[in-house]
Lab assay of single mutants.
Amino acid sequence: SKTSNTIRVFLPNKQRTVVNVRNGMSLHDCLMKALKVRG
């Protein structure tokens, strides 16, 4: 089974995003990807 960790990230202006960290990806990469999608 694939394991994925879901991390809630609290952003300024009362924004919130959820990042799924996959195996083999660093938290930083996942964060940058999530913020790019939002931006």
Rank of each mutant, 00 (worst) to 15 (best):
V18G: 01
M32I: 10
Q15E: 14
R8C: 04
F10T: 06
N20D: 04
V9A: 14
R22G: 08
S26T: 14
R38H: 01
N13H: 08
I7F: 08
V19D: 00
R22F: 05
K14S: 06
D29V: 09
T17A: 03
L11P: 00
K2E: 07
I7T: 02
V18F: 02
C30Y: 03
L11R: 01
L27M: 07
G39E: 03
H28C: 14
F10P: 06
M25V: 15
V21A: 12
I7D: 06
S26C: 11
N20H: 11
K2T: 09
L11V: 02
K36D: 06
L27Q: 00
F10I: 02
K36M: 12
P12A: 02
K33L: 06
M32S: 09
F10H: 09
Q15P: 01
T6V: 14
V21S: 06
K14Q: 07
I7S: 01
T17S: 14
N13G: 05
G39S: 13
L31R: 00
K36S: 09
N20I: 15
S1H: 14
N5H: 10
R8L: 07
L11M: 05
L31T: 06
R22N: 14
M25R: 13
C30I: 13
M25I: 14
M32A: 09
R22C: 08
M32L: 12
K14E: 09
N5S: 15
T17I: 01
F10Y: 10
K2G: 14
R38G: 02
M32K: 11
V37L: 12
T17N: 03
K14I: 04
L27K: 04
S4R: 15
C30F: 06
N13K: 07
V9K: 06
F10S: 08
N23D: 12
R16S: 03
N13Y: 12
S26H: 06
A34P: 10
D29E: 08
N5I: 05
R8S: 03
S1T: 13
K2M: 13
R8H: 04
L35P: 00
K2R: 11
G24R: 13
K14M: 10
S1P: 15
Q15L: 01
P12S: 00
Q15R: 01
D29N: 13
S4I: 10
V21F: 06
S26N: 08
G39A: 07
H28S: 14
I7M: 07
K33I: 00
V9G: 00
G39R: 04
K33Q: 03
S26D: 03
V18A: 05
N23I: 09
L35V: 04
P12M: 06
A34T: 03
A34S: 11
S4C: 12
V9E: 00
M32T: 12
V21L: 07
S26R: 08
T3P: 15
N5Y: 08
V37G: 01
S4V: 06
I7L: 12
I7N: 01
C30G: 07
V37M: 09
N20Y: 09
V37A: 05
G24Y: 06
D29G: 11
C30S: 13
M25T: 14
H28P: 01
K36I: 08
L35R: 00
Q15H: 00
K33E: 02
V19A: 10
R22L: 10
N23C: 15
L35M: 13
S1A: 06
N20S: 09
Q15K: 04
V9T: 06
N5G: 06
S1C: 15
L35Q: 00
D29Y: 09
R38Q: 06
K33R: 08
H28R: 11
T17P: 01
R8P: 02
N20K: 15
V18I: 10
V19I: 13
K33T: 02
R38L: 03
G39C: 08
I7P: 04
R22D: 03
K2V: 10
T6L: 09
H28L: 12
S1Q: 15
V21M: 03
L31Q: 00
K33D: 04
N20E: 09
K36E: 04
K14R: 08
R22H: 10
K14N: 12
G39D: 14
H28Q: 14
V9M: 01
D29R: 09
R38C: 00
N23K: 12
G24A: 14
L31A: 06
T6R: 10
R16L: 04
R16H: 15
N13T: 05
L31P: 00
F10V: 02
T17F: 06
G24D: 11
N23H: 11
S1I: 13
K36N: 14
N5T: 13
P12R: 02
R22S: 07
R16P: 01
L31M: 07
P12T: 02
V18T: 06
V21I: 07
K33G: 03
S1L: 12
P12L: 01
T6P: 05
R16G: 03
V19L: 13
K2N: 10
D29A: 11
S1N: 14
N5K: 12
T6S: 09
R38S: 02
V9L: 03
M32R: 10
S4D: 15
L27V: 15
R38P: 02
C30W: 02
K14W: 06
C30R: 02
V37E: 01
V19E: 06
L11Q: 00
T3I: 14
N13C: 06
G24V: 10
M25L: 15
L27P: 00
V21E: 00
K33N: 02
N5V: 09
A34E: 04
A34V: 02
F10L: 04
S1R: 13
H28N: 11
L35A: 06
G39V: 04
T17R: 06
V18L: 03
S1G: 11
V19G: 01
R16C: 04
R8G: 03
D29H: 13
K14T: 07
L27R: 01
H28D: 10
V18E: 04
G24S: 15
K2Q: 15
K36Q: 08
T6K: 04
N23T: 12
R38Y: 06
V19T: 13
N23S: 12
K33M: 06
M25E: 08
K36T: 07
A34G: 10
N5D: 08
R22P: 13
G24C: 13
T3N: 10
M25K: 15
M32V: 11
S4G: 11
N23Y: 11
S4N: 12
N13S: 08
L31V: 07
S26G: 07
P12Q: 02
N13I: 04
F10C: 03
S26I: 11
V18D: 00
V37W: 07
T3S: 09
N13D: 08
K36R: 12
T6M: 13
V21G: 09
N20T: 11
V19F: 11
H28Y: 11
T6A: 07
S4T: 15
I7V: 08
T3A: 15
